[in-house]
Every structure is written in C-alpha cells, then in structure tokens.
Design a protein around this nucleic acid. Structure first.
Lengths: 156, 156
DNA sequence: CTAAAAATCATACTTTCGGGTGATGCATAC
DNA sequence: GTATGCATCACCCGAAAGTATGATTTTTAG
C-alpha cells in the first residue's frame, strides 16, 4: 500500500508536469500573448477532473467484479451449501425419512436417476417417493416442492 | 443533456472559484510569504482529481445498478416473501435483467409456459433465457440453477 | 454511428418428469 | 391378525424440460 501511494504520487506529479510543459509550449508556439493564470488553472483542474472520473469509474467497476469473483470462489471452496433438513420443522409434516432424503436430493439438483444411484434404489422408487412428497406438500413439480419445503423451513 | 452540461460547467467553475478563494485567504491569513505557483496548481489538481474519482465511482456504480434498482423497487412493491433476488450480490454479474426474472420464476416453481405468460413472452424465449442461465451458472437443470443461485446468494 | 449484448421467437429432437395404476414385503400398532 | 404406513419396484403415456441451431429485432456502449 505504501509503494502504491508512492507510485500514485509519481504519476500525479508526472501528469502535472507534462500538462504544464504542454501548455507552456503551446503558449509559446501558438500564442503571442500570455495565457491568463485563471485559464491555466482551469485547464489543469479540468484535466485532472477527467482523469479522476476515468479512474474512479474503472476502479469501481473492477472492485465490483472482484467482489463477485471472490463470492463465487468462496462458495466453490465451501463446496457444499448442502440443503439441510430441519428435523424440528419436519415434525408435523407427514414426510417420511426416505421422502426427506429424496427431498434433499432434488433440492441439490439431482435427477431421479442420479438420486436412485445415490440412495441405492431404482429410479421408479424415487419417482414413487416423489409423488408421495408432491401429495403431502400439495404441489405437483419438484421445483414447487423445493420452494414449499423452504417455506415450511423443512429445508434450510 | 444540454442543461446537464451547463450545470456541470457551473459546478466546475464554482468549485474552482471556492478553491482559489480558499487558498488565497489561507495564504494571506497564515503565511507571510506567497505560496508558489507549483504548490498552488498541485493543490488544485489534486482536489479535482479527488472530485473526479468520487463522481466517476458513483456515476459508474449507479449506471450498472440501473435496472437492478428498478427491479428491487418492483419486488418491494409486490410485497411477496417469495424468493427474492439479492441485488447486491448480483451487481455486475453475468446475468441479465430478463435472466434474473426468469431465475426468480423457476425458483418459485413455475413451468416454462407459466413463466412465458407472466412475462409476456413465448415459451421458447423462456427456454432460451434458461439455457443462457444454465451456461452462465455452469449447470444444466433448473433445480441446479436454483441451488447454485442460492449458493451465490443471488436468490435468498 | 457502429458494434456488441440482450431479448425475442422458431423448429426439431432427446431426455427427464409427472400421473396413474398396481404389486410385494415388512414392520408395528391396535 | 389385519389395517396402516413405509419402502420397494414396474409399466405406460403424455407433458415438461433440456439441447442445438439459427435468425431477427431492440437496446446499449463505446
């Protein structure tokens, strides 16, 4: 951070110097009269304002992008934001143990076939469980089941 | 836009004038000697650089968040405690406005056809949006997209 | 003004889901 | 001992979802 400040100062001074030299040379080359101090300062101010706007914009944009990338990496690293079953909230919902397991799997985005393989049952069995889940939660799609289970705090 | 330029010029001149007056009065009040022109200009330049950075940052941020602010207001007005888009997490992300809307709808458990009717587009369009979402979130099913979006805190 | 990104729609094809129905074995509760 | 709930599996069919490709229009950014 210290070297960064140093570099910034350096660039700042450099730009300022170049501007001054530039204006001076323009003054001597193209104008017979001297440029007033107010115009002088105005040009400097305007130039730095523009530079500031540019860097402010790019920096802020980069900052946001970094934030997002970081977020993404974090959630990748943590790996499993596995939906967990809230067994307290489950009390009273008629869902059986196996149904809860299937529910968690669909919330993780697995297909019926994949769930079957994970739970060592056939795809048909998974479907049966699913249909029972749908009845009990009064829905008719897996996405609705997930949504409903979250509403009921069964899944968190 | 014309009046905006005018106002900008006005503010620019005003700030410049205030700075000049401020420095001058400081010079007369606290210093017996005259401040060198280089220091003078340096202060001006620095001041405008800072102002520029500030406005550049806020302007760019506002620009990026434009449609998101609108969406946020809409979802606040609608009042539902349904899955909401976290507009801070999503800021500057790959997902477009329409894609976010579709994402929210699938998280609520609607079918493609229903989403099309709600958003006044064809089912095919919804499918296209969905495929783009899948690519951007690196998934290949709607349930995975929901899960992933929750991981990324896009949906809460 | 122009290039890029976003939004729109379509067609055709495959895979996955959902709904209905039925069946078997196994606990356990009454 | 049988009714009930649970877990398991099968088959069928239509609906929904996903894949691939291409095209047009609108919007936005540089």
């Amino acid at each position: 951070m210290k070297s960064r400040t140093f570099i910034s100062s350096l660039i700042f001074g450099l730009v300022l110097a170049i501007l001054l030299i530039g204006i001076k040379s323009l003054e001597y080359t193209y104008f017979s009269y001297k440029i007033g101090l107010d115009v002088y300062i105005g040009i400097i101010a305007l130039a730095f304002l523009i530079i500031g706007v540019y860097f402010g914009a790019t920096y802020s944009r980069r900052k946001e992008a970094k934030f997002l990338i970081k977020l993404r990496e974090e959630s990748k690293r943590s790996g499993f934001t596995e939906p967990t079953i809230d067994f307290d909230a489950v009390n009273g919902s008629d869902l059986s143990k196996r149904e809860l397991e299937v529910l968690r799997e669909i919330a993780m985005g697995y297909t019926n076939k994949e769930i079957g393989e994970k739970l060592f049952v056939s795809e048909n069995t998974v479907k049966t469980h699913l249909n029972n889940i749908y009845m009990k939660l009064e829905v008719n799609r897996r996405t609705q089941a997930i949504s409903r289970a979250r509403e009921l705090n069964i899944i968190t």
